[in-house]
Design a protein around this nucleic acid. Structure first.
Lengths: 240, 240
DNA sequence: CGGCCAATAATGTCTATACATTATACCGGA
DNA sequence: TCCGGTATAATGTATAGACATTATTGGCCG
C-alpha cells in the first residue's frame, strides 16, 4: 500500500518546502529532467506534480527558463458563510425563520438593479426574520428572479429560509458581497428588539449563475449577537 | 493556432454545461471510453480533463460507477481583501499610514493567544492609523511574532503599513478572520475623529504559515467610510 | 556595434499501453 | 433469502516516446 502516489509525493515535497519558507519566492525549481533523475520516474509524472503546483499558484512555469516559486500575490480569502440554520444549530441554539412578507411584483421602473435582476420576468420579494432561540438574529430583505428560479414560486419557506433553499436548489457561480457596519434605525431596531443606534452588520449579496442573476439580499445582523467568522485555507494544501 | 488544447476543450465543454444547469447535480458524465470516442482522443487526454473538473469540485469520480456532477456543497466565498493602500488609491484618494506606537515585548502571562503567537520569541506590538486623504479610515492593533518573522524588526514601516509589508514578505497558508459590527467607544472615536457610538467594522485576523503563527491584527474601520467588498468566483472557471 | 535569426532548452500536449485499485454486480452455496 | 466470493467495469497511476510551442541565447551579418 503506497501511502502516496509518486506524483503526489513530488508535489507535497515541494509544497512543504515552499510553505515552510525553505524555498523563497523566486527560487528555482529543478527542471523536469533533473526531477526525473531525482525521483527515478518518467517526465509525465514529474509534469503532473509541477502542473498541480502551478495551478495551485505555488510556482510559475516558464518555457526555456524553468520553474520558479511564485511570489504570494493572491491575497484572497475563503470566507465560509454557512447556512444560518446550520450555524445557529452549531451554537446549540434553536433556529427559526419567520416570514414577514412575500410578494410577487415587477421590477420598479427607475431601479436598474431590479430590472437587471428580473430579466424578462417578475420578482419575488421576501422579508423575514432569523431567530436564534427566541431572540432575533437578523433581518433579511431578498429579491429573487422568478425568471431564473421559477421553482421558487412553489417553495415552502416555512421549512427552509429562502437563502438555504436557494443554496440547495440553484448552483451559483459568482457572487458579490458587501459587508458594512451601520447604526440601526428606529424601525429596524423594533423588529430586531435592540436599541436604536446599535451597531449592525450589514451583508449585501448578489448572486449569479453563469451570467444570469439569481437573487440579491440584504441581511442586517444584530452586532452583539453575530460575528462573521472565516476559517481560511489560502491554498488547498495540507494545512488542517 | 489551436485556440484551446483538447483537454481544455473537453473540460470547458462540461464546465459550461454544468454551470449553465444543463447538467444537473447527480447527472452522469460519460465514462472515459465514451469520451475517447466522442472526441477521438486517447484516454489520458480525457482523464486530464475530468481530473481538472474533479479537483475544481464540479464533478465526482467513482470507480466502477463512473463520474457524476457534484452537488454544490462548498458554499464558500473568496473574499478579496486588498491591501489598504491599493484600495484607497483605487478610490482616487491618497493613502497614508501613521504609526502611533511600536514596542517589542514578551507575551503577557495569562494571555494564551499571545503566548501561542510568540512561540519561543518576542512579540512586536504595533498600533497605527490608516488614512484616506486626510481622514482616518481605520485603527489597527497588531501583534507580530518575531520568532516567525525576524526581518520584521528592521522593516521600514514609514513606507509600507505592516499588513502590506507582511503580505509581500511572508507567504501565509491559513488565516482566521472574524468580522463584526461594534459601536465605537469614546477613546477610539477621538482617534478616528468620529462620534462615539458610531458603527465600526471590526476585522480580527490571525495568520499562519504552515503551523506557525505569524501575526494577529484587529482593524477597526469607520463604518460610514468603509465597506468590505467581495467579488467572488465560486469556482475558478470562466465567468468573468 | 547593433539587430536579426537560428539553435536550443525548457515546458505543453498527446498517444498507446500496461498494470493497480476499487466499488459494484452477479452468481452460487448454505 | 441471505451471505460471501469472484468477475468486471470503471478510474488511478505510470511509462516511453513523439511532436509542438516558446523564450532565451548566442552568433552571424550588415
Amino acid at each position: 500500500m503506497t501511502a502516496l502516489a509518486l506524483h503526489e509525493r513530488i508535489r507535497t515535497d515541494f509544497e512543504g518546502r515552499i510553505l515552510s519558507g525553505a524555498l523563497q519566492p523566486g527560487a528555482r525549481i529543478p527542471v523536469e529532467h533533473e526531477l526525473m533523475q531525482l525521483y527515478g520516474c518518467s517526465r509525465m509524472t514529474v509534469s503532473k506534480a509541477l502542473s498541480a503546483l502551478s495551478s495551485a499558484g505555488l510556482i510559475e512555469r516558464n518555457k526555456r527558463a524553468g520553474s520558479v516559486v511564485a511570489r504570494p500575490k493572491v491575497h484572497s480569502m475563503i470566507l465560509d458563510v454557512p447556512d444560518l440554520p446550520v450555524e445557529v444549530a452549531a451554537r446549540g441554539q434553536a433556529y427559526r425563520f419567520q416570514l414577514l412578507s412575500r410578494k410577487v411584483r415587477p421590477p420598479v421602473r427607475g431601479r436598474p438593479d431590479e430590472i437587471a435582476l428580473a430579466g424578462a420576468g417578475q420578482l419575488l420579494e421576501l422579508r423575514g426574520l432569523h431567530f436564534a432561540d427566541t431572540l432575533p438574529l437578523a433581518l433579511e430583505d431578498r429579491l429573487v428572479s422568478l425568471a431564473a428560479v421559477p421553482q421558487m414560486g412553489d417553495a415552502d419557506l416555512a421549512v427552509d429560509p429562502p437563502g438555504s433553499w436557494l443554496l440547495r436548489a440553484v448552483p451559483w457561480t459568482e457572487a458579490e458581497t458587501k459587508i458594512a457596519a451601520v447604526n440601526c434605525d428606529a424601525k429596524t431596531a423594533r423588529l430586531l428588539q435592540i436599541t436604536p443606534g446599535a451597531a449592525c452588520l450589514s451583508v449585501d449579496r448578489s448572486t449569479w449563475r453563469a451570467h444570469e442573476r439569481i437573487t440579491s439580499v440584504r441581511q442586517l445582523f444584530v452586532g452583539i449577537a453575530y460575528d462573521l467568522v472565516a476559517r481560511i485555507g489560502h491554498y488547498g494544501g495540507s494545512v488542517p
